[in-house]
Amino acid sequence: MQVPSLSDSSTLQRSNSINCNGRLVDLSVPKIMGILNLTPDSFSDGGKFNTEKGALEQTHKMLKEGAEIIDIGPQSTRPNAEFLTAEEEIRRLGNMIAFIKKEFPETLISLDTFYAETVKFGYNEGIDIINDISGGQYDEKMFDAAAETKLPYILMHVNPSYETMHDKIDFADITLSVNRYFSEKTAELLNKGVKDIILDPGFGFGKTVEDQMKMMDEVKYLGFGKFPLLIGISRKSFIYKPLGKSPLDINEETQKLHLKVLQQGAKILRVHDVAEAKKTVDLFKSGSV
């Protein structure tokens, strides 16, 4: 597989914008992606927002607090979560995407799924971004679905199967390994015609605490400086477990890490606590740190 040259500007996009259904979204100022779990079993907010009323209220709250993207997830990917088929995901989603789009038409909606069939359903309902934790590895048709819909695609680094996604891997060099993965996957996506790619290094998935802290220090080296970076560390165990705290009690530590990745060029923060992340983004934008 041919890996695009880092100096070849004809094959690699600039990291300043993405095209969402014909709408050019400027990423020169970092964006906040608010997490909307439609699941009964997510690790920190399962069952809270899986009704139309609950989802709408939470979406309104996150938008008011500063989110510009709402990431809808029909399936939990925490360790030992219930496994859903694409059909079950679609049934759980119901009319929720269209319902939220009708109420908040300017809001960008990303769909958190590793199924091509769910992506196609979401596309018809009005999603703007594909958020695939599997890097196309759990459904061989996913990259084709991304190419067919022409939606921006979030490519996450993860272990190669659903069963092993949380198995800790002994990486000789985590940053090198993640970049090698990104090189191979972005080449495949570009060859299929996917033009807008966002990279997610996969904090919380199959990596030791030490490797994840190393990645935090080396975010600036991830993604070749050509693709926008999304960082999702909200309520992740590599932060709270070493501190002996709960997922809901690490806001201060999380915001320090958010600031650290913003200073290294991260473009999107995927978060549960939008208001706190907005303070961090504003602090970063002020240039006072």
Rank of each mutant, 00 (worst) to 15 (best):
S10P: 00
E57D: 13
L155W: 03
T208S: 15
F143P: 00
E276M: 12
L199W: 01
M142R: 04
K64N: 14
A172D: 15
D273I: 12
L36K: 05
A145G: 06
I174H: 04
S110V: 04
S288L: 15
M156P: 05
K101V: 13
V158K: 02
L222Q: 00
F171T: 03
G287N: 08
E87C: 02
L262H: 10
E140S: 15
F143Y: 14
K256Q: 13
M215I: 06
K278S: 11
D139H: 07
G202I: 08
E68W: 01
E252N: 13
D167W: 12
V25D: 11
L111V: 12
Q2E: 14
F43Q: 10
K141V: 02
D8L: 14
Y115K: 08
K150Y: 02
S110L: 06
L243A: 07
V3N: 05
N37S: 05
L93M: 09
G126K: 03
M62D: 12
V3T: 14
R92E: 06
D8M: 11
D249T: 12
R180I: 09
Q264F: 10
F284S: 05
G54Y: 01
L230D: 05
P79E: 11
A147W: 08
Y153D: 07
D128T: 07
L222T: 06
N16P: 00
L259D: 06
S7M: 14
N159W: 06
G54L: 04
G34Q: 08
M215P: 06
F121E: 04
K168T: 15
S286L: 12
E82D: 13
K150G: 00
D45I: 00
I239T: 05
E88S: 01
M1D: 11
Q13E: 07
I174T: 07
T85K: 09
S44D: 14
M33A: 11
Q212T: 10
K267N: 11
A187M: 09
G46V: 10
G126T: 13
D112A: 08
P4G: 05
A187V: 04
T59P: 01
A172P: 00
K226E: 09
F238I: 10
R14A: 11
V261H: 03
G202Q: 07
K220Y: 11
F121S: 06
S237C: 00
G34K: 03
K185G: 02
G46A: 04
S15T: 08
Q2Y: 10
K207Q: 07
Q58H: 14
K141H: 11
D139R: 03
L56A: 11
S246C: 04
L36G: 03
S44K: 03
E252M: 05
A187T: 06
E103D: 09
D132Y: 05
D211I: 01
L63T: 06
F203M: 04
N80P: 00
E82Q: 14
L283Y: 08
P201C: 04
L27I: 13
D41V: 13
K207C: 03
A147R: 07
L248V: 04
K214P: 01
F83E: 14
M215D: 01
L230I: 10
Y123H: 14
S44M: 03
L12G: 00
